[in-house]
């Protein structure tokens, strides 16, 4: 970790299985993990305690990932929280859309530890271990 105290990652996904898999990897990478089941829950969670980073699914009931992203950028500004999409949406135009809406990074499912670690290095939350 680059900071002294562990960074908090909010994992937003309507699948409990995916949240659990992400939590296992992120805790191993040194993050404190919180969970939300849709965009609306995630927005509430951000208002009560702002995480450093949100790992964000796209397709969810109630409020989807892109709606959350737009709402979060309008309410909290462009830099906080850092948003990493994590979705089965893998078309070029979807990635362009998410980056355009203010996401810092984009993970196409399925993911593994290597991919998550690399993406968290990209957004500056982990050091490149070989560097």
């Amino acid at each position: 970790m680059t900071g002294e105290s562990p960074a908090t990652c909010l994992v937003v996904d309507d699948s409990r299985t995916v949240r659990k898999a992400a939590r296992r990897i992120l805790e191993k990478l040194g993050f404190t993990v919180a969970e939300a089941g849709d965009g609306a829950e995630a927005l509430t969670a951000c208002r009560s305690s702002m995480p450093q980073v949100v790992l964000l699914d796209w397709n969810m009931p109630v409020m989807d990932g892109l709606e959350f992203l737009r709402a979060a950028r309008a309410e909290f500004g462009p830099d906080h929280p850092i948003v990493v999409l994590c979705t089965t949406e893998a078309a070029m135009e979807k990635i362009v859309e998410a980056l355009g809406a203010g996401a810092q990074e984009y993970v196409m499912k399925p993911f593994d530890e290597g991919i998550l670690r690399d993406k968290f290095v990209q957004v500056g939350l982990l050091r490149d271990e070989a560097a």
């Binding site: 996401a103 984009y106 991919i115 690399d118 993406k119």
Partner: peptide, 14 residues
């Protein structure tokens, strides 16, 4: 898809 996610920022991918 797996390979392009290793080490490369999404910005450079697109």
């Amino acid at each position: 898809q797996f390979e392009v996610q290793r080490g490369m920022p999404a910005r450079l991918l697109v």
